Amino acid sequence: MGNICRSPMAEAVFRHQVKEAGLEAVISIDSAGTGDWHIGHPPHQGTRDILDAHEISYEGLQARQVRSDDFHQFTYIIAMDESNVVNLASFAPELVGDTKHAAIHKLLEFSRNKPMTTDVPDPYYTGKFQEVYEMVVESCSRLLAFIVEKEKLVTE
């Protein structure tokens, strides 16, 4: 929502996984929130702490808000929960019926563990950064495998 907890965590983790796969030249990654209240802020301290503990860089990450051109710039837009999926529609209402825009998925759709909900809980409210990190790592790994297969990419 505010782009300081879940999304920058997923962005940093996914960047790390993409780099390890040797695909950083072909996969562009960015995160954004549907809310505007944290624009320009670094990731939340809890997110930074968990990424530091796992030696994953978050250098240069700053909160920003979704823009309508994101739907044309990116192939996939990955939301953390259903409320964000709903809110995304307000950023690109002209896309109704347009098939040349990013596919929207929820991150936990890619989870092997098939949780009871496909919403990543917001650690801003729960403080459960480790739990969210574990969901993000596993789901991002499977998201990367999905993209590699779907886009027919070659990993190192």
Rank of each mutant, 00 (worst) to 15 (best):
residue 143 L to A: 08
residue 46 G to H: 04
residue 104 I to T: 07
residue 156 E to K: 15
residue 84 N to F: 03
residue 39 I to P: 02
residue 73 Q to Y: 10
residue 88 L to A: 06
residue 19 K to G: 13
residue 100 K to D: 13
residue 14 F to L: 11
residue 34 T to I: 09
residue 40 G to N: 08
residue 90 S to G: 09
residue 112 R to K: 15
residue 123 P to Q: 13
residue 69 D to N: 11
residue 106 K to N: 07
residue 81 D to N: 12
residue 57 S to P: 13
residue 124 Y to A: 12
residue 32 A to K: 02
residue 117 T to N: 13
residue 108 L to N: 02
residue 85 V to N: 04
residue 146 F to A: 10
residue 5 C to Q: 04
residue 2 G to I: 04
residue 154 V to T: 14
residue 142 R to M: 03
residue 62 Q to Y: 11
residue 16 H to W: 08
residue 108 L to I: 05
residue 17 Q to Y: 09
residue 46 G to Q: 06
residue 53 A to C: 07
residue 45 Q to W: 04
residue 46 G to L: 04
residue 29 I to W: 03
residue 156 E to P: 14
residue 21 A to C: 08
residue 136 V to E: 00
residue 7 S to F: 04
residue 42 P to S: 13
residue 121 P to R: 13
residue 67 R to E: 13
residue 114 K to F: 06
residue 114 K to M: 07
residue 82 E to Y: 07
residue 86 V to Q: 12
residue 56 I to K: 09
residue 63 A to Q: 01
residue 148 V to K: 04
residue 156 E to D: 11
residue 79 A to H: 01
residue 112 R to L: 12
residue 146 F to V: 00
residue 13 V to W: 01
residue 66 V to H: 01
residue 117 T to E: 15
residue 69 D to I: 09
residue 85 V to A: 09
residue 26 V to T: 12
residue 40 G to S: 08
residue 32 A to T: 01
residue 146 F to H: 15
residue 142 R to D: 08
residue 146 F to N: 09
residue 140 C to I: 00
residue 10 A to F: 01
residue 20 E to H: 13
residue 113 N to I: 03
residue 94 E to M: 11
residue 29 I to Y: 04
residue 103 A to D: 10
residue 24 E to C: 13
residue 124 Y to S: 10
residue 64 R to C: 07
residue 51 L to K: 05
residue 58 Y to M: 05
residue 34 T to Y: 03
residue 145 A to I: 01
residue 30 D to G: 06
residue 134 E to L: 04
residue 84 N to R: 01
residue 6 R to N: 14
residue 14 F to R: 02
residue 40 G to E: 11
residue 139 S to C: 11
residue 23 L to G: 07
residue 80 M to W: 03
residue 114 K to V: 05
residue 58 Y to Q: 05
residue 1 M to P: 12
residue 120 V to K: 00
residue 68 S to D: 09
residue 123 P to E: 10
residue 17 Q to P: 09
